[in-house]
Each structure stands twice: as C-alpha cells, then as structure tokens.
Nucleic acid binder design. Structure first.
Lengths: 354, 354
DNA sequence: ACTGAATTAAGACACGTGTCTTGGTCAAGG
DNA sequence: CCTTGACCAAGACACGTGTCTTAATTCAGT
C-alpha cells in the first residue's frame, strides 16, 4: 500500500528511539513504563512515534533488569496425537490471555536434557508437560527444574513422583461408562487395546473392575481381551483387526470398550464389515471424544476429556506457583471426565448367550 | 531417587557458578566458550560442576552481547487444522535439529499486532507463518517485519504481496488428478466445497480447468457444484450433505473432487448411505492425504501435501535469510504435490449417461 | 631456589533497559 | 527581578555475559 513513508531506519534501542523522537532516553523510558509527572503532549509524541516505527523494547534487556520473562515452557511428548495438540492449543490460548508467551519444545522418549536446559537458559517462569512420558525420565527432568526453583505442572499423566499434576480421572470415567453399559443390560465386555503397564491403562482397568464390582460382577468372568493377537498400534487398523478377531470367536461380547476413539471406530468398521450391526448387535464406546467421533455411522459414544476444564485448572495452578517457594508436597488434582452418549451404544441384545 | 546430594543452592549467574567451582568468572566464561589455553583439569572441573548444578548461562544476557537469539517465531492461524499442525510439528523438529528454538503464537483472523510485537520484542531471527491468513492483514504484518529487518516466510499461502513464500502448487495437483480421472473415463465431475475467493481455491479451479482443457473439455459443461445448498463448513457433515444433494439430482457426476479429506470422506458416507457404491458407481478424491484417508472403506484417494519437502525447503529458505539484507524481490517457491491413488477412485461406470 | 612459560585472577567495558540523582529550562506567580 | 514548581536532560549504576587487558599465581625445568 504505502510506498516509503519516511526514512524507516531500523530502531534497535531506546536510545535510538529517543533520538528519533527528540527526547532523552530516560524520558522515553519513563513514558514507556507509565511514570507520573509527564506532559500529556510528551506522552502522545512517544506513542505516535511507536506507531510510526513499531519500536519495541528489547525483552532480553528487560529481563536482565529483573523482570520476569512471562514465558512458560511447554514440553510436548509429540505434536501428532490429537488430544495432546488440543490441550496445547487451549493452553497457549489461555496463557496468551494472561499475557504469557509459550516456548514449545518436543521431548521424544529418550530425548536429551537439552530441552530442559533450553528452558532454563531462557529462564522460563514455569514448565508444563503434556503427553505421556517415561515416568523415570520426566521425574528426573522435574527434579532438575525444582533445583532451579522453576515451577512445573504435568498435565494428564498421573503418578509422576514429586510432580504437581492435573490429570483426568480415567478410573472414574470407566466406572461411569460401565455403570451405563451395565444399565443397558450388558454383561460381557470386550476390551480393545486396554493393555499394558502404563498408569493410564491401569487406571482404566481399575475403573472397569470397580464398575463391575458395583454390580457384583467379576472382572475375569465378564471381560475379554484379544490385544495380544495383533501388533499393538492403538490406531484405526488395530481396532479393525481386533474386531475381526472377536467375530471369529464363539461367544462374542455384547459391548466393547476401547482405549481411544481411533481404535473404537476401527472396531466398529470391523464389526460392520463382518455383518454385525452397531449398536443392535454390539455396542462400542471410545475414549477422548475427539472430532472423529462424529465421522462414523453410527456416531460414537465416547468419554470426554474435559480439555477446557483441565487446561484452565492447569493454568491457574502453574501461574499461582510462579515466584513462590516450592510446595512441601506435590499438588495433584483430578479432573472428572464426562460420558457422552451417542448412537454406537444401546441395549444388550436379548437372545444372545442365553 | 537421590535425596539431597549437597547444598543444591540455586545458581543464577556465572559469577555464582564460578564461586561454586572455585574459579574466576572470566575463566569459567572462557571454558564455556571453548577458548584455548586452559588446563584440561580446569575444563573438566567446570564440566563436572555443570553436571552437578545444571547451570545454564542466561540466554538473555547472551543475546544482549550481540549473539543471535536462535529463535524463530512461528505464527499459526490456529492449532486445530490437522495439516497445519503437522507442518508445525515438522518445522519445530527441523529447527531444533538446526539448534533453533520455536516461539509459537496463534494469530486468529482480525488478531492484533500484539503477536508481531511480541516476536519483535523477543528479537526472533525470523518469523514463519503457517495457515491461511487474511491477505491484507498478513501483508501488513510482513511489512512491519521488513522494516525491522526481520526475515519472514509464508508457508502454503501463495500470493501475499512482498512475501517470501513456499507454497503447494495446488493447480498442478488438480491437473494431475484430473488427468488421472479423465484417463479412467470420467467426463462429468462434482466439485465439493471448492468455492470461494481464496487463492487456494482459485488455484484448484484453475488446475481443474487446465486439466479439462488438456482433453479439449470445457469447465462449465463438465463440472457441477452444489456448495450453495448448505451452510459452508468444509467438514465431514458438509461433505455428507453435499453428496445427498447430488444424489437427489437427475444426472449425477461420476467423479467427485473435494476441497479436503474430511469433505471427501463425508461425501463417501453420503453416497454409500444412499446406496451408491464407491468406486463402482462414483469415484471420490480428497486433498491433503491426512491420516484419516485410511479410515473409511474404501480407502480414500487423495493428494499429498509433501509436508516434509515443504518444511525442509522452508527451513533452508528462512535460515539462509537471517542476517542478510532483504531481497529486492520476494522469493516464491512452489512445491509439487503428489497424487496418492487408493481405492475410492476407479473407472467410470459404462452405462451411465449414454 | 631461580627463570620463564603456562595458566589463572581481577578489573574494565559494552550490550539495552529501568531507575535514581542531579542539574537545567521554562513559564507562571509574586 | 526573584521564587517556585513542573517538566525534561544527562549522568550514573545495576542486571549477566563475553572479551580484552594487566597482574598474579603456579608449574616445569634447570
């Protein structure tokens, strides 16, 4: 639009900027920091010059003068899993609302200490972890942060030693789901990809067991898993393969509970391609309540992670810890998930294993 | 694990660190910067102390001494569209490989200048834009960056004035797709959500037209669009609704080309639920080649964005511009997309509109 | 123990900023 | 004219770091 509105030299310091405005550096500094005792005309002159030049004080020099960096380090396990990215997006948004910047790094399993070192060298005010990390590794990173008086928060990975945590109460989510399915008359359950030593998996299993126990049912008798039959993937294809394996069995469960939505949708496709109707013949439930729940027919029943609530709680937590002495004991807060019933779950078929 | 291996006081400067090691600050500084003329034993003593304390020099003070910040600002339109996030992930990874940090901000449409101001105040070495921005807005941001001698790069939004750009050649992708479909005998095409003034849409239309023209066919006669019949959404549901509207018409096209994979998959579901077989009755092609192409039955033919190549090129571009005088003319580089043929496209049905 | 080289200590300055202090200008009021 | 504020200019210092300079220490070789 505008060709060349003036000399437009690059201004790199308050000194240069002050000479551009025609004021002393100290005066400009006082204007920038809102000190009293300045003529309105002077303030306006500076503000106009800022508009013209787009001058911004060097954040690095500011911090050197003791100002907080107002930067939060965000450590992601990866940027490829949809729920984690959603949390990142919401976290970034909330932090920006509260005038904080986000310095994002990806720390893959076995990743080096470099990432934490970088956070420390950038003097971030706190570090937030999102994803599922190797417990031993993340615990060591957090110890390192604590020795540097840098607050931290782990989102959605319960059980890291010494770690302040905000995590989804997966056990309660599964209890709720089981209560719902049991109420529909289901008594035999197929578990899809809910295997492994990870805490998040163990929590789910505990919730399933508790849900069954509330109806006087035993875990071993009522549940079946064929996870071992295929290479573990936790994705769509794995779900489809598991479904087909279940179809090949004699007594197929009437309800299926999946590790996540991808596996659930894959399983639905598997059942459907084998001629089973969902939910008339089998019910299927996912986990995470991602957008893809709306993609298959029928729409997938799932458990919502309550990402907004989780992130909101997390931001409050982590910002409140900045500049404070570390807590004597880690603060752990659990978020209640929410069952979202859609069309993939329904009453148990009557004449089945009778 | 370890209880308290020493005093573990927080070390905030080379001075404190030097007194911890028992050396002069200047000596420590020389070790840290790899100067010659130091006893091996001294170097080791410092390195060991770094291991013990995790000391890191203040990046802010470093920059103040003229060192580059080695930080790239990444400006995202949002963090909710899968392809954009994939680019972000790859970009972050590449930059980290090249020892650069990523400062990520989200700039929604109509967003303020704050974001650019923040980048400038953080003295980022360059700014990369990912997403589809309002052309006028992004052009102004880039002008502002240029007056501050900060290089920039726009990824995948062709046509921003004065902007260095690396973008997907959507026209050529569509040409290739059309050549493929025409080769299969298709002569009537349904366009799904390819409407609007956005350059990325216009490029596709131009590619479609060119593809048809290469076979001596006219755009108006061979293509049909019903986008106006439903509220524009560019998602799964929109695709499904469009498909059902096409089914309700008299002469349904034999091949469908969609704006993206979501719309394509939605359309496939729509056709299938109306009793049409894919690809026997209608062919459907998506765009972006996201993971979800593997979710429906049949697997979706799509056009791959070549994200790795795009990002790789971008990183080379942007890093090479750091510290250099701005180019006289913007550098625009086009990336050739790649047609990925799967199962959703096949020969045109024979006894159709004859 | 003495010399000379090797190594380290110690002080200074610069970077860009905020803030304190001191001195100067200017206009209004006497 | 002088006094009094109100305002601004100008200098100084600090923050943490790299680097230069100069002085002090250590060490190896005699």
């Amino acid at each position: 639009m505008k060709a060349a509105p003036g000399p437009k030299r690059v201004i790199r310091s308050t000194a240069e900027f002050a000479s551009y405005v025609g004021l002393a550096r100290t005066t400009v500094s006082r204007v920038l920091n809102g000190h009293p005792g300045l003529k309105t005309q002077t303030v306006q002159r500076v503000q106009q010059a800022i508009e013209e030049t787009g001058f911004t004080p060097n954040a690095y020099a500011l911090h050197l003068k003791g100002k907080r960096t107002a930067t939060i380090g965000i450590c992601m396990e990866n940027l490829l899993t949809a729920p984690a990215v959603l949390k990142l997006a919401e976290l970034q948004r909330r932090l920006r609302e509260r005038s904080h910047a986000s310095l994002i790094e990806v720390l893959p399993p076995g990743g080096s200490r470099e990432v934490i070192r970088h956070f420390l060298s950038m003097r971030v005010d706190a570090v937030v972890f999102i994803g599922h990390f190797v417990e031993e590794e993340i615990a060591r990173r957090i110890d390192e942060l604590m020795t540097h008086a840098t607050p931290h928060l782990v989102i959605d990975q319960r059980g890291v030693p010494h770690a302040d945590t905000v995590a989804l109460d997966r056990a309660s989510g599964m209890r709720e789901l089981m209560a719902y399915l049991l109420g529909l008359g289901h008594r035999s359950f197929g578990l899809l990809a809910i295997t492994g030593a990870a805490r998040s998996v163990q929590d789910r299993l505990a919730g399933i067991e508790a849900g069954l126990a509330a109806h006087g049912l035993g875990f071993a008798e009522c549940t079946r898993s064929l996870d071992h039959l295929h290479a573990r993937q936790n994705d769509f294809e794995y779900g489809r393969a598991l479904a087909l394996s279940f179809v090949a069995e004699k007594n197929i469960p009437t309800a299926f509970v999946a590790l996540n939505d991808e596996v659930a949708i894959g399983a639905m496709h598997g059942f459907q391609s084998a001629g089973l109707r969902v939910p008339q013949d089998v019910s299927v439930a996912g986990f995470n309540n991602q957008d893809i729940c709306l993609m298959p027919t029928p729409l997938l029943t799932s458990i919502d992670q309550q990402i907004e609530l989780t992130v909101n709680t997390s931001v409050d937590q982590v910002l409140s810890q900045i500049g404070r002495p570390p807590r004597p004991h880690p603060h752990v807060e659990m978020i209640a998930p929410k069952l979202v019933v859609r069309d993939s779950t329904g009453p148990a078929p009557k004449a089945k294993s009778a």
